[in-house]
Write a protein that binds this DNA or RNA. Structure first.
Lengths: 235, 235
DNA sequence: TCTCGATATTAACCTAAGTATATATCATCA
DNA sequence: TGATGATATATACTTAGGTTAATATCGAGA
């Protein structure tokens, strides 16, 4: 599980063993638990085994912006691995099972084993690429495309990670949180979801979403998976 | 110059010599020249010696979003150092002097000299942190705060890099481009600049901007420099 | 089964920001 | 020195999305 994430970037040989050998602590967190708080000096490095999590920042006036979303199998703290103080918050979205590794030990491993360091680096580069796409999405797409893009990204990522069948998935968040991720209000998220549904681009049952017209949705979303770097080869 | 950028992250000893020893090509680019195009397989790694540059992505319908801005002394291609295909465009903003290093050589150096690899990693982590702040800025702040935040960030970064005296600076971009960076239209950028000016928060002469009431501006902008990780220590 | 808190949905109304277009300013260059 | 193209500024009007608040729905307990 710890190395499942490494695979997407650059397969290593038997330094998997080294990764697996890292001492870790397993713990289950309740929804909305903080894993990292802005201002903290990060000591540990968390990996999401099950459940969902997100990164979040807040404005002085208390507006929240979700800055990224994380699915089972993804590491949560590479962004702070070499930084002294956290610049954002990391929180669980749902109840989540999390493995915690010592930050120093991981850094040591990254330094001593080049291929592991490389894999971690690639992982953070892909994350950065997703940040860029989110900037584009929030800055330049209207609510319908923006939401559609978000849904497409989530679908593809879940699919890649093998967490879900292609038919659809259970959105692990409220419309309020969806708004925080998209830079919209909950009310407008609701309007927009309804509008996509009315056009038959998605269908829903409670939070379960499926995609009766995937191609049409993808087109509306202006979605291309290039920025996810799915085909990234080891090197 | 090449290693000036490394300093902000984690000073290395005499592997500066190794960096300096990298063969490079010097070239001057005209404004708006493409350095990297989305879809390309990056071969070279550019460092901005003078002038300004930015990263940019476009929507299917042709809307542009500037995703980051770069000032003299900053490396431009670490984001693609270990990725096979570019996910965004890099362009000069002004006429710019650029040193080009072979990507393979730099990767080799990053691998063989841990402290250089580390410095590069820290640099990309800080860039990622800036991406996150931009997501917050675009997603959750209104036009006045958003523009003010942008101006503050630019001021601080220029100041840190020693490019400018604290009194103010010459904005190297049109209001159109400012809009592309902020997720606004040029018209609204103009309104917003005028409004900040009317309130005495900035003063202008053509594109030269100065800050008669820095503290007030910074407060309006909800700006805290934490996310720039200015105090990042070597480790 | 009933209650409660969290979500979701809806409606009415408001405003920040977009659109469209005209005009002014400025730097460049023939 | 006058023309030209790129910016910047201004104005009128429209609209996507925000605000507020009321109502409906649902799952978890008691």
């Amino acid at each position: 599980m710890v190395r499942k994430l490494e695979t997407h970037a650059a397969l290593s040989e038997d330094d998997r063993r080294a990764l697996m050998a890292l001492p870790y602590t397993l713990r289950v967190y309740e929804p909305s638990s903080y894993l990292v708080r802005e201002g903290d000096a990060p000591e540990q490095c968390a990996v999401l085994l099950s459940g969902f999590a997100y990164r979040q920042k807040q404005t002085g006036s208390g507006m929240r912006q979700i800055v990224s979303l994380h699915i089972p199998g993804e590491p949560l703290d590479f962004q702070h691995l070499f930084l002294d103080v956290a610049d954002h918050n990391v929180q669980t979205l749902t109840r989540a099972e999390i493995a915690t590794i010592s930050r120093v030990a991981l850094r040591e491993l990254a330094r001593s084993r080049a291929s592991i360091g490389h894999a971690i680096f690639v992982n953070t580069l892909v994350e950065a690429s997703i940040f860029r796409e989110w900037i584009l999405n929030i800055g330049r797409r209207d609510a319908r495309s923006r939401l559609a893009h978000f849904l497409c990204e989530f679908a593809i990522r879940l699919d890649m990670q093998g967490v879900v069948d292609a038919s659809g998935y259970e959105l692990p968040m409220s419309q309020e949180q969806l708004g925080d991720a998209l830079g919209l209000t909950a009310v407008h998220v609701n309007r927009t979801i309804k509008s996509l549904e009315a056009d038959g681009l998605i269908s829903r049952n409670r939070r379960r979403i499926s995609f009766p017209r995937w191609e049409a949705l993808r087109e509306l979303a202006d979605f291309s998976s290039r920025y996810l770097h799915l085909t990234q080869q080891a090197s």
